[in-house]
Computed example of a mutant assay.
Amino acid sequence: MKTLTESDREHRVRAVQDALECAAREGQPISPEAAADLAACARGEITAAEVRRRIIARLHADPRYRPATCS
């Protein structure tokens, strides 16, 4: 994974904060777990692919989630 400069990190953290605020204003709040994953990605601690993997894993673990099936 590429090492981020402090400027890159600050820019990414602010972008995540802005996106979370925008989603909340639009009535689409992000779970605390997903928000934490996005923040970790912005800080360069995990990759975007890892964020995606974690979010999908949580969806699959949620009993309300039912994959679409073709009939």
Rank of each mutant, 00 (worst) to 15 (best):
Q28S: 12
Q17M: 07
G27S: 03
A49P: 02
L20F: 01
A42P: 08
S31W: 10
A36K: 14
G44C: 04
G44F: 10
A49F: 08
E6M: 07
A42R: 02
R9H: 06
A24Y: 04
S31Q: 10
T3W: 11
Q28M: 14
Q28C: 14
V13Q: 04
T3P: 03
E21I: 04
A39K: 12
A15Y: 01
E26T: 03
I46Q: 06
G44P: 02
R43I: 10
E50P: 06
I30T: 13
E45W: 09
A42D: 07
R14M: 13
A34T: 13
L38A: 07
E26D: 11
L4M: 09
A19D: 07
T5D: 06
A24K: 10
P32D: 13
A42W: 06
A39R: 12
A48P: 06
E50Y: 11
E26K: 09
A35T: 02
A24F: 07
V16Y: 00
E26L: 14
V13H: 00
D8S: 11
T3Y: 09
A42N: 05
A42S: 05
V16P: 00
R25L: 15
K2Y: 11
L4S: 01
I30N: 04
E26Q: 14
R25P: 00
A35Q: 11
H11I: 13
R25D: 10
D37F: 05
E33W: 07
V51Q: 04
D37T: 00
A36S: 15
V13T: 05
D8Y: 09
A35R: 04
A35P: 04
L4F: 13
E6I: 12
A40C: 14
D37W: 04
A35L: 08
R12E: 12
E50G: 02
V51Y: 04
I46G: 06
A39Y: 12
E50S: 10
R43A: 15
E33Q: 14
D18A: 05
V16E: 01
A19E: 09
I46L: 11
R12Q: 14
